[in-house]
Simulated scan of single mutants.
Amino acid sequence: MKDRLLAKPEAELDYPFGPDAAVFKVQGKMFALLYQRGGSECVNLKCDPHEAVGLRDLFAAVTPGYHMNKRHWNSVRLDGSVPDGELQRMIDQSYTLVVRGLPAATRRGLEARHGRAALYGVTA
């Protein structure tokens, strides 16, 4: 999972909460938190609030964000029950939501270095 998260453009790994909680950031803003809970590996990912509820209804492994704003974050138990493609889509969306929230000058710099498709998954 760490490799997938670090594959995002300019993703950085930090441990501000200690060695058991891996925080993945872009331009200093968190887009994922990887941790162990109840013997399972979990990841917290930012999500559109309306979609967050639907994902929780669809997948038992998706719950409101543990120790996070439960409207904007989901926790995903990495037990294999969420299809790989869906998990990657959730990672991509979390990253994109955080990038879109960055100051315009910072976003433009990221776009110039990596292209819009790499940041947002679109070509326009």
Results as ranks from 00 to 15, higher is better:
P49S: 13
T96L: 10
V98C: 08
G18T: 03
H67T: 04
R77V: 14
L78G: 02
K25T: 04
R71I: 13
A32L: 12
R116V: 12
A118I: 15
A105D: 03
R4N: 09
P16T: 03
S94D: 09
L6Q: 12
A22E: 00
F17L: 00
K2H: 05
A22D: 02
R71G: 12
V53C: 01
S81T: 12
T96Q: 11
D14T: 11
S40Y: 05
Q27M: 15
Y66Q: 14
A7E: 07
V99D: 11
M68E: 07
M68P: 00
A7P: 06
R113C: 09
N69L: 14
H72C: 05
D79P: 07
R100K: 10
R116G: 02
V76M: 14
A112Q: 06
Q27N: 13
Y120E: 07
R107A: 04
G101T: 00
R89S: 09
A105H: 05
G39D: 02
H67K: 09
H67G: 04
R89V: 03
F59T: 13
Q93E: 11
Q27E: 15
D48A: 07
R107D: 04
Y120V: 09
Q36I: 00
F24H: 08
H114D: 15
T96E: 15
D79T: 10
W73T: 07
R100W: 09
E51A: 14
G80E: 11
V43K: 03
N44K: 00
M90K: 01
A7G: 02
L102P: 12
L34I: 00
Y120Q: 07
R77C: 14
A61D: 14
E86T: 15
K70S: 15
A60N: 07
A104Q: 03
T106W: 11
P83H: 05
D57E: 11
L34R: 01
D84E: 15
A105S: 07
